[in-house]
């Protein structure tokens, strides 16, 4: 395949236009597939992890096709493939080990919104309660009020 596609005297490998169109078509089909699969309700089917697995699987296939055909990786020296695939493997190691640690702790030590967010939400509630218009100035004023009322150890967030 590689040698038969190599047009005479070319500096690099030449990929035929028809093959590029076919590749793009396949990629578009895969995009439709991944959108369609995302609409299936795997939570109901007791396969809640399935959506992300299928989505990532399709993405990896699409990425491989783009690299092999569009980026000519299929006809490159193997060292270039080593560099590129290696970068993905190292990202995989990075994410994998980070996630291993993340799973070791309680999911949420501080339930609810963060204290700073709660201040802002209280201010918005107060602004809603006192009047519907002039929200901007009013909300800011209440935030200032709330943060000065709040525990003085908490640094103001603005």
């Amino acid at each position: 395949m590689s040698s038969s596609n190599h047009e005479h005297g070319a500096v690099g490998h030449i990929v035929p236009i028809k093959m590029l169109i076919g590749t793009c078509f396949a990629l578009l089909i895969l995009t439709v597939v991944t959108v369609w699969v995302a609409k299936l309700d795997f939570v109901k089917m007791q396969l809640s992890e399935m959506n992300i697995l299928v989505a990532m699987g399709v993405a990896v296939v699409k990425c491989t096709i783009v690299a092999l055909i569009f980026m000519h990786l299929r006809w490159e020296r193997s060292f270039i493939g080593f560099v590129f695939v290696g970068s993905f493997l190292f990202v995989g190691v990075f994410i994998g080990f980070a996630l291993l640690d993340t799973a070791e702790y309680q999911p949420s030590l501080i339930p609810g919104d963060s204290p700073q967010i709660q201040l802002k939400l209280d201010a918005l509630d107060a602004a809603q309660a006192t009047g519907e218009h002039g929200g901007a100035v009013h909300a800011d004023a209440v935030v200032d009020q709330a943060s000065s009322d709040a525990d003085h150890d908490t640094p103001a967030d603005h």
Binding site: A10, V11, V15, F70
Partner: peptide, 24 residues
């Protein structure tokens, strides 16, 4: 988002075509 995916895939194809035409 899906339309944008299609736009990028097709532009990737036209870019690969440009390389093919340049080599020819």
């Amino acid at each position: 988002g899906a339309i944008n995916t299609g736009v990028l895939l097709i532009s990737s194809m036209t870019m690969a075509m440009a390389v093919t035409f340049a080599a020819r």
